[in-house]
Design a binder for these strands. Sequence first.
DNA 1: CTCAAAAATGAACATTGTTCAAGAAGAATC
DNA 2: GATTCTTCTTGAACAATGTTCATTTTTGAG
Lengths: 206, 206
Amino acid sequence: MNIVQEESRRDRKKLQRRALLIEIARRYIATKGLRSLKVRDVAEAAGCSIGSVYNEFGDFDGLILTVNRETVQALTARLKAVPADDPLRQLHGLADAYLGFATEHANLLRSLFEHRMEDDRPFPEDILAMVMDAFVLMHAPLVRLLPDRDLDDVALLSRMMFSAVHGIISLGLEERMVAVPPEKLRERLAQFVDTHLAGLGLTRKA
Amino acid sequence: MNIVQEESRRDRKKLQRRALLIEIARRYIATKGLRSLKVRDVAEAAGCSIGSVYNEFGDFDGLILTVNRETVQALTARLKAVPADDPLRQLHGLADAYLGFATEHANLLRSLFEHRMEDDRPFPEDILAMVMDAFVLMHAPLVRLLPDRDLDDVALLSRMMFSAVHGIISLGLEERMVAVPPEKLRERLAQFVDTHLAGLGLTRKA
DNA sequence: CTCAAAAATGAACATTGTTCAAGAAGAATC
DNA sequence: GATTCTTCTTGAACAATGTTCATTTTTGAG
């Protein structure tokens, strides 16, 4: 066997265990919250030593950030899957997709937005960019709906709308301070989007 | 001296130190974030032992929750100070007051919304009620503006609006994932409220 | 002043992130 | 296949930090 194959075999094994560690960490965060994540638990569940976790991710933040990175990627994928045929329908679809993801992965999304870095280390640029990528998805349909408005204006508008949706959902899903009852959330969110679009001078969805 | 006076003197001293501990903890949270808060630091800064902090607050969560309790009280006080003469102006005033408080006390507000209890202990009912009290403040002006709507409907509408404002502000103030540039935030927030009110069929502010 | 109750203390403990010297495993060379 | 060099793995030890509690100190009544 040549060198390339030898290397790829080792890499494959390494990648496999890396994926296992990530999967275990994600399960802890998803089921019991970020605070329940412990290096020792992850190592034990993966059948390796503590040190190996550090070899793979550098430090604890590295593991968390890796999970968060995959979370925002999954979120973005889901948002991008929303049909872009009709802009009004797309905006509703985006809000609904966000709600769906937040409902199914509440703790993962919380981990993404609430995790603070150790000390004062800066937040990784790539995750920041990915979150912005997701947030910007409301831009295109709004441009189609508001062709006469200044583009920068629409850009701010879309980010604002997404932030509002995010606020409604994240507070609405907090078990503790229930700002909006969960069962009503879906229809209310649609109503909110409608109202806001109407305020922008756009016809409500038929 | 009678018993009452003796007791009140001791109580005064006790209350004084309690206030000092709270003030120190609040300063740590406000300047460096919740994660920077350490029992030992607080005890040292207050000139007392670690055990005394525990005597006063039971545990670490107790100290944090006490600070959070005062944070939500301060927020509510500020929101209640908004003039209630004109409902449209009041709604704008509430949003602006929330933004002002969030700007000046970003870390304190984050501590209130992001703190998770140790283990799975339930979130204190009284703080929950206080947050709801604050959120419900948009209800009265909206009732005046929408007298024909169902009251439950308006209740949900007001909580939704507050959640949206909260989302715009909390994401907008995140230094990292800047959803809306800070300098634009104030005017954009006003614009958002305007747009939403217009969507509800209400005249924009003159 | 004496004494019992309350409060304060801080050493010791438990948990958990982190490091690193030593050993194991793998790859390369002959 | 043996040897050697590199890389990975290990887990004991360390550091930071929340928590407990037996001991000491302080307090206030009699």
